[in-house]
Design a protein around this nucleic acid. Structure first.
Length: 805
RNA sequence: GCUCGGGUGGCGAAACUGGUAAACGCAAGGGACUUAAAAUCCCUCGGGGGCAACCCCUUGCAGGUUCGAUUCCUGCCCCGAGCACCA
């Protein structure tokens, strides 16, 4: 036998990465592509530590999908970029004492090198970075679109303040009362902030979830986050004629409302407070304010509150009921006031018990004791409504109260407006100017971008004002309207605004006069496939959908959903815990790639477990993938060196090939990469059992193509060894012959009374009659039937026969 | 507390709409080749019983539906994720 070249991943992978670049293999013609397929994956934040295994897992899975589509004949556009603004980079820069503008390019260079090294099918012509003025010019433009539409507004509001990062955070960025980035306990502060009116879009954001093809888990997370609840606003009037509006999802229980509770910050508290209660009320308000947001939210759930010394009339019973304030009522949800129905609400029940307030039962559910939360009951003590089921009672009571203008049906959302202000340095400046005469003025589009100045001292301080305010020549400007004295907005925008539209920019990176070219956008968007982690289910994915809806309403894009198809991948953990620098369990892919090659490592990550579920990273099994690739390599190389035999392919091998194509096609399409790989392994094992089959070109070429998305470099090399001059990605994904895939013998299970007693091999498609006859003749079966009458025969074609005696 | 996922060999896992549980791979044990080692190749590999043909048990636990349940239903236990005084 002649010598077969060794499989040397390092040199071979370098060779093909260079060729792909030289031959522009991964660069589709964006203006003429006939079958465009936009394959998007969540762009990384280029940390100083470099790409970690979690990134690589996600990108490999998405890249396999793109390469698979390419082999199916699509023109696949697979861009890559960097989400490089934000607190994380800025904190690292502060720690190093170097401006992030100097550090980020280094990090990006590292990432770019690692991303090339892993063999992703990236079109580097369209790389982008959110920190590039040519990019954030349009992020600022986006802000102006929202501003002009009245969707951006400034308000003084209680916000989450991270004392360590010295900036506000969106609700979505507060995890268990702690800062998403640095894990510090978040405090409450009152600051003037820019908000986007995402709540105006709550219903559409909810409705659109039903028209898109997303991982169900992601859809559910978003639905919960938007948090729609239906109910009514009811009005409780005070003797002085003040109207207290409450929101309730249970208007059916209004007859059981025995007191009201307002949030301590509620605007009516002051004037409704009775003289003799003023001291107690003030003291309580102070106590609540001094508590930070954390203890208020997650602290012990003992109810506190005070009676404010006045009463309001229950609109249903007409009775005067006391008004309390308590911190379990939140100003930012509903109307900041509730009617308390202690008999039918757990919290109200606790509160009433603690302060010995009256409890009036109005819903009866047989066998249950108070508090009865269930809506599956009937009304009692509710006047004319007694005996009605809760749901119908609710409708009738609202209608009855509405006649007297004391009730309005109402839908409430948990979603809050999106606070986009950040009192930091490393972000796109919000393009607003404050003029002494004209007030709030938008920066004219021709003046964009408002460039972020290179300043020495970019440390945030405790004032709640961005460090940009200390940079005078940048801060003080002329008013674009009147030319008078003015100053710039010093807040920068949230990173999630950068990533809310990046998919629109990728195809149009070379355009300087528009954020996204209409023709390119029409051809490539919406995105064909989006793959990313569920950690962004309620952040990025919600914001991107919102921004897209705004752009749609403004006529900038012709589609309502930017990502009609989204799949969430699983999380790669290490020793059962999420990888993080603080835990010290971050796995860096570089050493593995160096030792085993990118192809082996890619496949190993995909073989670890189901892509959409993730798994625990261990490196024990990696050698199994290498052995598999070695076997394929050896087979192809010897086949190429020897004269490949064309004859003598046993029918069973032929059938196995077609079954393998069927399985690998279906599993790759549905992102079940682990089982697709297993199917290819089985196929190779089968080839090795047949003399000559292993070197047969007809049996190997389809395998090499199917392997290509998973292990692109070795596939290219083998494709070349098989005599092809063009890239394997110019080849066509193999098609299986259903007849061959379904031909051959099958093993049928023979059960007696549901217990497996024998197996037999018959040609696929054998008729029931014949199978049953053979089963009855089987020795083992005979023993268990034991002469008894067969009462029933269950037959499943090509699977089993069950004899019931 | 509420809402989702998930519990299968020593390990990662597989099992199409209810139809042969453990495919594929790792680790382990035995053998071949070798002066030796590595690599490679072959065999064994859920538990128990039996000389053997075979038999019994086994998908977190306890029940149920079914000819048949890892899969469906009810209750419980454990792990992970999301939300968390949301009215």
């Amino acid at each position: 036998m002649r010598d077969v070249p060794n499989y040397d991943p390092a040199s071979l992978e370098a060779k093909w990465q260079q060729r792909w670049a030289e031959r522009h293999t991964n660069e589709p013609d964006l203006d003429r592509a006939a079958r465009p397929f936009y394959n998007l994956m969540m762009f990384p934040y280029p940390s100083a530590e470099g790409l970690h295994v979690g990134n690589m897992f996600a990108f490999t899975g998405a890249d396999i999908h793109g390469r698979f589509k390419r082999l199916q004949g699509y023109d696949v556009f697979e861009p890559m970029g960097f989400d490089a603004f934000g607190i994380h980079s800025e904190n690292y820069a502060l720690q190093r004492g170097i401006n992030p503008a100097q550090l980020i390019p280094q990090n990006i260079a590292t990432f770019r090198r690692q991303l090339r090294r892993m063999g992703g099918m990236f079109d580097w012509r369209h790389e982008l970075s959110t920190t590039d003025p040519a990019y954030y010019k349009w992020t600022q433009w986006l802000f102006l679109q929202l501003f002009r539409k009245g969707l951006a507004y400034k308000k003084r509001a209680a916000v989450n303040w991270c004392p360590k990062d010295k900036t506000v955070l969106a609700n979505e960025q507060v995890i268990d009362g702690r800062c998403e980035r640095c894990d510090t306990q978040v405090e409450q502060r009152f600051l003037d902030q820019w908000f986007f009116r995402i709540t105006d879009y709550a219903q559409r954001l909810l409705d659109n979830l039903d028209n898109i093809d997303w991982s169900p888990s992601t859809v559910l997370l978003q639905k919960h986050w938007i948090g729609r609840s239906e109910g009514a606003e009811l009005i409780f009037e005070t003797p002085s004629g003040k109207k207290i509006t409450v929101f309730t999802t249970r208007p059916d229980t209004v007859f059981g409302a025995t007191y009201l509770v307002l949030a301590p910050e509620h605007p009516l508290v002051d004037e409704l407070t009775g003289e003799e209660r003023r001291g107690a009320v003030k003291a309580y308000q102070r106590e609540v304010q001094s508590k930070d947001i954390v203890s208020r939210r997650v602290g012990d759930k003992t109810k506190t509150g005070v009676f404010i010394g006045s009463y309001a009339r229950n609109p249903a019973t007409g009775e005067a009921i006391p008004i309390w304030i308590a911190d379990y009522v939140l100003m930012e949800y509903g109307t900041g006031a509730i009617m308390a129905v202690p008999a039918h609400d757990k919290r109200d029940f606790e509160f009433a018990t603690q302060f010995t307030l009256p409890i009036q039962q109005v819903v009866a559910v047989p066998g249950e004791t108070l508090p009865i939360i269930s809506e599956e009951g009937t009304l009692m003590n509710s006047g004319a409504f007694d005996g009605l089921p809760c749901l119908e009672g609710a409708r009738r009571i609202v209608a009855w109260l509405a006649e007297r203008k004391l009730a309005t049906p109402r839908v409430q959302y948990r979603l809050h407006d999106w606070c986009i202000s950040r009192q930091r340095y490393w972000g796109p400046p919000i393009p607003i100017i404050y003029c002494e005469k004209c007030g709030v003025v938008a920066v004219p589009e021709k003046d964009l971008p408002v460039e972020l100045p290179q300043i020495e001292d970019f440390r945030p301080d405790d004032t709640g004002v961005s460090p940009l305010a200390r940079h005078e020549e940048w801060y003080f400007v002329k008013c674009p309207q009147c030319g008078g004295k003015a100053r710039r907005e010093t807040d920068v925008s949230d990173t999630f605004l950068d990533s809310a539209w990046y998919h629109l920019r990728y195809p149009s990176t070379e355009f300087t006069d528009v954020p996204f070219d209409p023709a390119r956008t029409k051809r490539w968007l919406p995105v064909s496939s989006y793959i990313g982690g569920n950690e962004h289910a309620v952040l990025h994915l919600l914001y991107a959908r919102f921004i897209n809806l705004v752009l749609y309403d403004l006529g900038h894009v012709p589609f309502e959903s930017p990502y009609p198809r989204f799949r969430a991948h699983g999380l790669i953990v290490k020793d059962g815990a999420k990888m993080s620098k603080s835990r010290g369990n971050v796995v860096v892919p570089d050493t593995y790639i160096q030792q085993w090659g990118a192809d082996t490592f890619r496949m190993y990550l995909m073989f670890l477990g189901p892509f959409q579920e993730g798994g625990d990273f261990r490196d024990e099994g990696i050698v199994g993938i290498r052995r598999f690739l070695d076997k394929v390599w050896w087979a192809v190389q010897t086949g190429a060196v020897q004269q490949p035999s064309k004859s003598g392919v046993p029918a069973s091998v032929q059938q196995k090939l077609h079954r393998t194509i069927r399985r690998v096609s279906a599993d790759t399409e549905s992102l079940h990469y682990n089982t697709a790989i297993a199917a290819m392994m089985e196929y190779v094992n089968e080839l090795r059992e047949h003399q000559g089959a292993e070197q047969n070109r007809e049996l190997l070429e389809p395998l090499v193509i199917m392997l290509a998305p998973y292990a692109p470099h070795i596939a290219e090399e083998m494709w070349e060894a098989l005599g092809h001059t063009s890239s394997v990605f110019e080849a066509k994904w193999p098609v299986y012959d259903e007849k061959l895939a379904s031909a051959g013998d099958v093993e049928i299970a023979v059960q007696v009374n549901g217990k497996l007693r024998s197996r037999m091999t018959v040609p696929r498609g054998t008729a029931e009659k014949e199978v049953v006859e053979r089963a009855l003749a089987d020795e083992a079966v005979k023993r268990f039937v034991d002469g008894q009458k067969v009462k029933k025969v269950i037959y499943v074609q090509d699977r089993l026969v069950n004899l019931v005696v």
